[in-house]
Design a protein around this nucleic acid. Structure first.
Lengths: 342, 342
DNA sequence: TTGTAGGCGTTATCAG
DNA sequence: CTGATAACGCCTACAA
C-alpha cells in the first residue's frame, strides 16, 4: 500500500541502490540489459520519485539573477517587491536570487552588467530589457556559456532566449481596445494613446492589438497617433495637457506604458475627467488609487507574483535540463476595475 | 551563509539534537533554562525549520478530502479537473487526496458522507456545500474530532470552519454590475437576473452586490426580480424564453449561478441576441464558447486551480498547527472577455 | 532532564 | 559497469 521506494526497486530488480539511481537519473555506465530490468521494476511497482527527498539529498542551490531596468515606473517597483516576497517565501527553496539594475537610458551599462555574469556563479538569468544589437550579443555570449535565459515582460525573440515569461501583449492591447470601445459606447469621439517608447516591443505590440480591435469593432471612434513620453513625467504632463486642449472631442485615453503617474495627475485636475474613459496597464499604487477615485475605468495587468515565480520555475527547470509544463507557465491578462480591486 | 540547521543550534546552545528537537516541537521534559537557551540560539541564528525534511523524517502524509456536490454544472467539473491536476503535479507532495461527491438535492446524503469521515483517517476536509442545520452539525462534529475544515467557493460562516477559500461574492456581484452598467451604457432597458437557488449563499451575495452597484451607479437600468432555475436546464429554457417574450426591453442578462448551458442555448437562437449584454460566472467550456461566439460579453471567474491549491496549502498548514500567509491565499475575482480568453 | 544512534527516501563518492 | 556507504535535515526510540 505504501509508496514503493528505490529500495523496493533495487530488490525487485536485483541490483543496488546506486544502479537504480543511475537509471532513474539517466546517468551513463549501466548495461542496456540492467537498465531495462530496472525500468521493468519501476513500471511494475508503479514507482514515483519523492521529489522532496531527492532535493534534500541533492543539496542543490540555484543561483538566479533578475536583470531589471532602473526606471521611475511603479511597475518595476512592484516587480522588485514580488521578487523580495518570493525570496522570503519558502517557494524559492534552495535558490539564491539576486537583482541587477541598470540605467534604462544606457544600453552600455546593461551590456556591462551582463558581461559580469557567467556560468561560474550563475545558473540562470531573467531579463527585462529592450532588444538592441548590443544586448543581443551579450545574451548570446551568456547562452554560449551555458546560462539559461528568460525574457521578462517584454520578449527578446531574436536573442535565442530559452523562454518568454509575460503576457501576449497583442492580446493585452486587444483587451484594452475591447473595453475602451464597450465603455465609450455609441458616444463616439476620439482616443488618445500614450506610449513609453516606440522602441519598446511590448508597447508596440499592445498598440497594434488595440488598433486592430478599434478598427474591427468600433470604427466610429477615432484613434489618434501615439504620443511618446519616454517615461518622463514632465513630457507627459505637457503633451497630455496640450492634446486635451487641442482635441475637446477626446472621450478616451489609453496609457500603453509602464507608468501612469503624470497622466493621472493631469486628469485629476481636469474638468472633463468624468467624460473621459481611462484605461492603463499594470496594477500599481498609482493605478489603484486612480481606479478607486473614479479617474480610471480599467487596468490591464499582469500578475507580477506569477511572473516572478514562473521565471524562477522555468530557470530552475532549464538549469536542470528538465522540461517545463508550458500550460502552467502561461501568464494571464488580468482585467481590474474598481470593484474587483482585491 | 547557508541556512542554519538543527545541528548549528545544538552547537550554539551547547545541547544535543534531541533537546533542540524537543524545544522546536514544544515537547515536555526540558528545563526552563535549557529551553530559553535553545530559543536564544534559534533566534540568534535565524533558524527556520525545513518542513520537507521534517515530513520526510516523520513519514508524514496528509490525507485530505474534497467534498463536492454532484450537480450538472460545468463549474463543478472544472473543480474536479483542477483537483486531478493538482494530484498529478508534484505540488501535492506527501498528500493523498480523495473526493467525496454527494447528490446536491439530498442534504441527508451529505451529512452521511461527513459522518463517514474522522480524524482517524482524515487530516483535513474542504467542503463545497450550502449551510443547513444538519450540515452545521456534521461539520461541528468533525471539528470537535480535531479535523481542520475549509469552506470552498461558498462560505459556511456559522459552522466554525477554519477558513474560507473562494472569492468575495459580494464584490464579484458588484464587478458584474459594474460591467453590465458600463456595457449597456445609456441605452437603458432592463436586466434579467438568473440564479441557481436563493438558498445558495454565494448566489445571494452576488445578487446583493450586483443590485448595490446598479442602484448606485446605473439607476436608469431596471433590474428585474431573480429567476430561480435550481440548476435545471428545462426550467431555465422555459423561464428565460418566457421572460424574453414578456419583456422586449431587456438589454442585459446576468447569470449568477454555476451553470449557463441552457441560457446560452436559448440565446443562441434568439433574434435579439446581439442587443443583449450577457454576463455570467465561471469559466467553463460553455462560457468560453459563448464568449468566442459573441454571445457573452464577460465572465466573472475564480481560478479553480488557485482554489484547489490554496485549499490544500491551508489544510496542510492547519493540520500542522502552522499559520497561513493570508495574503497568499486570497482568491482574485477574474474578469474574462473575448480578448483575454487565454 | 538529556543524549545517542538509527532511519525517512534520495543522491553522491569512491572503491571494486 | 556495479555496489557499499555516507550524507541531506529532521524526528524518535531507547539509554543514560
Amino acid at each position: 500500500m505504501a509508496r514503493p521506494t528505490v529500495n523496493d526497486i533495487a530488490e525487485e530488480a536485483g541490483v543496488s541502490l546506486a544502479t537504480v539511481d543511475r537509471v532513474l537519473n539517466g546517468r551513463p555506465g549501466v548495461r542496456e540489459k540492467t537498465v531495462s530490468r530496472v525500468q521493468a521494476a519501476i513500471e511494475k511497482l508503479g514507482y514515483v520519485r519523492d521529489v522532496t527527498a531527492a532535493n534534500l539529498a541533492r543539496q542543490r542551490r540555484y543561483r538566479l539573477v533578475f536583470v531589471l531596468p532602473d526606471v521611475p515606473a511603479q511597475f518595476v517597483d512592484t516587480l522588485h517587491e514580488a521578487i523580495a516576497e518570493s525570496v522570503s517565501t519558502s517557494v524559492v527553496d534552495r535558490t539564491d536570487v539576486r537583482i541587477v539594475s541598470f540605467p534604462n537610458d544606457n544600453p552600455h551599462a546593461l551590456v556591462k552588467s551582463l558581461r559580469a555574469l557567467s556560468a561560474a556563479d550563475t545558473d540562470g538569468v531573467a531579463i527585462f530589457a529592450q532588444e538592441t544589437p548590443h544586448v543581443r550579443d551579450a545574451i548570446a555570449r551568456l547562452k554560449a556559456d551555458g546560462v539559461p535565459i528568460v525574457a521578462l515582460v517584454s520578449d527578446l525573440p531574436n536573442t535565442g532566449r530559452d523562454h518568454f515569461v509575460g503576457i501576449d501583449n497583442v492580446a493585452a492591447g486587444r483587451t484594452a481596445g475591447f473595453l475602451m470601445g464597450k465603455f465609450i459606447g455609441n458616444t463616439g469621439g476620439s482616443v488618445m494613446v500614450l506610449v513609453s517608447s516606440l522602441q519598446a516591443r511590448d508597447n508596440v505590440e499592445r498598440r497594434l492589438g488595440f488598433d486592430q480591435v478599434m478598427a474591427e469593432s468600433f470604427p466610429a471612434i477615432e484613434v489618434l497617433p501615439s504620443i511618446e513620453n519616454h517615461d518622463d513625467e514632465e513630457t507627459t504632463t505637457r503633451l497630455v495637457t496640450e492634446m486635451l486642449r487641442k482635441r475637446p472631442d477626446i472621450t478616451g485615453i489609453y496609457s500603453v506604458g509602464h507608468g501612469s503617474q503624470a497622466l493621472v495627475e493631469v486628469l485629476r485636475g481636469h474638468e472633463r475627467r468624468h467624460a473621459i474613459t481611462l484605461i492603463a496597464h499594470e496594477l500599481t499604487r498609482v493605478t489603484r488609487e486612480a481606479l478607486r477615485d473614479h479617474l480610471m475605468d480599467a487596468v490591464i495587468s499582469q500578475n507580477v507574483g506569477h511572473i516572478v515565480r514562473s521565471a524562477l520555475r522555468v530557470l530552475r527547470a532549464k538549469s536542470d535540463g528538465r522540461d517545463i509544463v508550458s500550460s502552467q507557465e502561461r501568464i494571464r491578462i488580468e482585467i481590474v476595475v474598481r470593484e474587483n480591486l482585491v
